[in-house]
Amino acid sequence: MVEITVNGERRRVEVEGDTPLLWVLRDTLGLTGTKYGCGIAQCGACTVLVDGVAIRSCQLPVADLGGRAITTIEAVEADPVGRRVVEAWVALDVPQCGYCQSGQVMAATALLKQAPRPSEAAIQAAMSNLCRCGTYNAIAAGVRRAAEPA
């Protein structure tokens, strides 16, 4: 049994401590917005926020989280920055198949929380999640749109 804090709620989950957070979210808590793509922290489809920082949850043992605050895509609009990111994604029709976009939105939210007006280099560095549909330019445009005006 492990206790974690997900989207502001304390949750007790009956899993082995080495279970990756991804599968606790998806299977135990039914929060399927966070996606499985590779399982080896390469693609970023499983990106969530841990204390506001973008983390790939597929390689993150749930026992390591302690009381840290986990935010998933399901709660992203509760955050003002997250809400701006979602609005930008919708306004620009960023998603195609959409499967990577939960992770992209979380990565963008983490970036903009940390750097409200990120440089192109910062966008490049932070937005490293894979997208097989090739929405990369739209993603970058979405980040710029969601950024605070200079």
């Binding site: 399927t32 996606k35 992203v76 979602v86 939105v105």
Partner: peptide, 17 residues
């Protein structure tokens, strides 16, 4: 597109979900 919001908020459902 009709599906942008669902896909930007994790509400879109795929077979794996």
């Amino acid at each position: 597109r009709l599906d942008s919001r669902a896909k930007a908020t994790g509400q879109a459902r795929y077979a794996i979900d």
